[in-house]
Nucleic acid binder design. Sequence first.
DNA 1: AATGGGACCTGCGCGC
DNA 2: TGCGCGCAGGTCCCAT
Length: 267
Amino acid sequence: MPELPEVETIRRYLSRKLLGKTIQEIVIEDARLIKGIPVQQFTAAIQGKTVQDVFRRGKVILIKFAPELFLVLHLRISGWLILSGQKEKFSRVIFVFSGSSMLNFCDSRLLGEIRLVKDWQELPIIKKMGPEPFALNRESFIALFKGKKSKIKTLLMDQAFIAGIGNIYAQESLFCAGIHPERHASSLGAQELGKLYLCIKDILKAAVAKKGSSVDTYRTAEGKSGGYEPLLRVYQRQNKPCFDCKTPVIRAVVNGRGTCFCPQCQK
DNA sequence: AATGGGACCTGCGCGC
DNA sequence: TGCGCGCAGGTCCCAT
C-alpha cells in the first residue's frame, strides 16, 4: 500500500500523537504478521514501554522504546495504520496506549510485517537499503546510475538502489521526466537523469504535502484519505487520454508490475 | 550478477 | 444474486 509519501504521512501523525505514550496492552487478532519472535515474547517485551521516537527509513516505520528496543512496522502492499479509539476493519494487531488510544495495524492481505529488534540498523531490509531520495543532490543521484543496466523503472523500484519509491511514484516520475519505463539505465544521459531527479523530488514532496495517494485502502493514521490522488498523471489511467498530448495511455507489465505510460510523451 | 517467475495472502470489482 | 477471473501501492526466494 504505502510508498514514501504515505509512510511519511503516517509517521508524522504517529510521532505527534504517540511520543511519551505507554503501551498498555497488545491485542493479536492474527499472529501471522508478527515475524521472527514468538507472540508471547513479543507482547511481553513491549508491554509497559513508552514511545521515545517514531522515525522512518524507506517504507519502514520504526518506533523506539529504548536504545535497544525498536518496533519495526512494514505495511508492504496491503497494510495501513489507524490510530483511533476502537478496533478497525481488518485490524490484525492492536497496540493499546495510555489514554485509551489504539494503534490498529490493519492489513487485508496479511502481507505486512511486525518485528521487534534490538538494533534496527542490522535488519537485512535496512542494511541493504539505498539512499533516501531527499538526501540526494543532482550529482549524487546521477552517480547512482554508474554501471547500472536494468530498466529504469525496475531500478527506481529497487529499494537497494533508492529507498521509498514504489509502483505509483515510479510511474509518475517517469511520466514527468518523459522517460519510457523500459529504457535501460545505461541509455540515459545526464540531462535526462537530471530531469528525472527533479521530477522524483518534486512529486514525492508534493505527495507528502498532500498526505499521500488514496488509491485503494490507504488512509492516513487519522483515518482520512490522502489528497494526491487527483494529481496522479498516469497511474491506472490505461486507455485514457494523456493529460499532455491526448494519446491513449498504455499499460504494460514491467518487472511483473502493471505500468502505465504515454507512448508519445515518454521515449 | 542480473532477470524473471512464483510465493506469500485476501478482497474487490467486473463480466457473464 | 452468484461465480470465476484478473487485479492489487511490496519483498523475498529460487532457478536460469
